[in-house]
């Protein structure tokens, strides 16, 4: 079947098998390998990207389901060569080591700050509770998100 998906603001279309998972469409058909393919069982959250305006686990969604919709991946976070504040936060606070969970964490963090600009550490932890990081112990990820929240508040002030 032929699908057309708006990916990071660009209309992309392809002939696919209906059984193709969204994560494989994004990585293998479109070559956007920022989103990672992890556990394949909707547990780890490495594949989190946005479908329309919602973070989803793209290993558990068919590309066919995204036909006619908008997808935003980690490649769509930066604006005119400037990293998104959540990306800056992860760099500044050492929010990653191996980097495998990072794209999913960034997409969830961006969504959280869009909906809750001044989160508590508990709210950050809850937001990423469906995502696994085996390096950081989460402490630096939480710090990174809170750093980004502070940065955005200061930018607005």
């Amino acid at each position: 079947m032929r699908i057309a998906v708006d990916v990071n603001g660009v209309e992309r279309s392809a002939d696919i098998e209906p059984r193709l998972l969204l994560i494989h469409f994004i990585r293998d058909e479109l070559g956007l390998t920022g989103s990672h393919w992890g556990c394949d069982t909707s547990n780890c959250g490495a594949c989190v990207l946005w479908l329309d305006d919602t973070p989803v686990k793209s290993c558990t969604i068919l590309a066919a389901m995204a036909d006619g919709h908008r997808v935003r991946t980690v490649e769509g976070l930066e604006r005119d060569g400037v990293l998104d504040p959540v990306q800056q936060g992860f760099a500044h606070c050492h929010g990653l080591q191996c980097g495998f969970c990072t794209p999913g964490m960034l997409m969830t963090a961006r969504w959280l700050l869009d909906h809750c600009p001044d989160p508590t550490p508990t709210q950050v932890r809850e937001a990423i509770s469906g995502q696994v990081c085996r390096c950081t112990g989460y402490e630096n990820i939480v710090r990174s998100v809170l750093w980004a929240a502070r940065q955005e508040r200061e930018n607005r002030a």
Binding site: S42, G45, T54, P55, K57, T60, I61, T108, S129, G130
Partner: peptide, 9 residues
């Protein structure tokens, strides 16, 4: 039920 991301969809 599950986690916040799964609950979104």
């Amino acid at each position: 039920i599950a986690d916040p991301i799964v609950r979104q969809w």
